[in-house]
Amino acid sequence: MPNMRGTRRLRKITQGAPGILTFLALWETVPRLGFFDPRYLPPFSQVAKAFWKILLNGTLLVHIGVSLQRSLSGFGLALLLATPMGLLLGWYPRLERFVDPLLQLFRQTSVLALFPVFILVFGIGEFSKVFLIFWAVQWPILLNTVSGVKEVDPLLLKAARSMNASTWQLLTKVVLPAAFPSIFLGIRLAATYSILVLIAAEMIGAKSGLGFLLFDSEQLFQIPTMFASIMTMALLGLGLNYGLQEIGSRINSWKGAEISES
């Protein structure tokens, strides 16, 4: 079983390699041909050199640390608040119907539009950024939790209830596991979203973090560093996405095993 997974991963990497290599080769040669000013679009080797430099002198790690801390705090807060809230709303459909218009209104209000409000309310420190990410991330988690709970097979609920399960047992033993795939989908969506919002927030008002590094190196006209920070963000996004995918498949495979055993 793990062996199969290993070979599949290997095949995926070998399949992906040609595309990526071609892209890097183009990035290396096209700027040298002189369509663009090479100062604005430096070839890949220069960017890689800049990346290596900021990696070695520790700048990159500091900024990554700051960014990760912000986004993980916002994320944790959202998980703590939005999941129970979503369970509640999904469990009581009338409450959900009552609140839904407001939720839709808030969801349609772009997070970044609220950034100035959060700065006013929470100051220009860390907390306004953490709160911004919390705000952005909670909507996909909340809405997916609600729809996950609403779509739990009624047969499962009736079966559990006929076996005299309490409401609490019903929620923790039936509803939560059954809604989990949908909740996890919300978390994955939220992860992609949080990076976009984080970067924008750090570009608008911050003194550290990857978004700041990007904006600052553009202002200082250190173009290779700028591209290096973009590359870091792309890698971070890919890594996050891949990691969540792995976690999701592992949890799901565990669930599948348990179901097939019993």
């Binding site: 399949q15 992906g16 390699a17 040609p18 595309g19 990526i20 071609t22 892209f23 992609t192 990076i195 976009l196 970067i199 924008a200 570009m203 978004g211 990007l214 920070s229 973009i230 963000m233 792309a234 996004g237 890919l238 996405n241």
Partner: peptide, 16 residues
């Protein structure tokens, strides 16, 4: 052939 490149681009936040 293109999928890995597309995935990478998609994961790069537009704001960056």
């Amino acid at each position: 052939f293109l999928d890995p490149v597309l995935q990478t681009f998609r994961q790069t936040a537009a704001m960056a």
